[in-house]
């Protein structure tokens, strides 16, 4: 099971960026999906494999709030995917570090849990 993507002290209005691509185009035997919860606990629309491959963004608007979710990589055969998961602050700089290790393999299912905490305004 993959390590979680746990980040805190995120400035409000930062953006989560997610994109997954095959480590080897000839062994692209997986599908990705993602589920997310907004700061109020409500479920946001799921991201499909095609959407995640194209690259998705998720703006964390609420200060002093928490956002959760997970990214699934379902491997049909032995293969690896490269996960580019990061948070970009409103000023364009990256918050903390990118998700590592970025190369994830299977089968079976690998799930990256997302636990994101924004900091209070003015903090």
């Amino acid at each position: 099971m993959a390590l979680p993507f746990f980040r805190r002290q995120i400035p409000p209005n930062s953006v989560v960026q997610l994109k997954v691509r095959p480590a080897d185009d000839a062994k692209d035997f997986w599908v990705a999906s993602a589920q997310r919860q907004d700061f109020d606990g409500s479920n946001l629309p799921k991201w499909s494999d095609a959407q995640i491959r194209a690259g998705q963004t998720w703006k964390l608007t609420q200060p002093n709030a928490e956002y959760h979710g997970f990214v699934d990589l379902d491997f049909a055969k032995k293969s690896q995917a490269i996960v580019d998961l990061r948070i970009v602050r409103p000023d364009g700089t990256m918050h903390s570090t990118r998700y590592t290790p970025d190369q994830i393999g299977g089968p079976p299912l690998q799930r990256i849990f997302l636990h994101l905490f924004t900091k209070a305004d003015g903090q």
Partner: peptide, 9 residues
């Protein structure tokens, strides 16, 4: 302490 942005690391 506030500078700890990735508690698992």
């Amino acid at each position: 302490i506030d500078g700890i942005t990735d508690p698992f690391s």
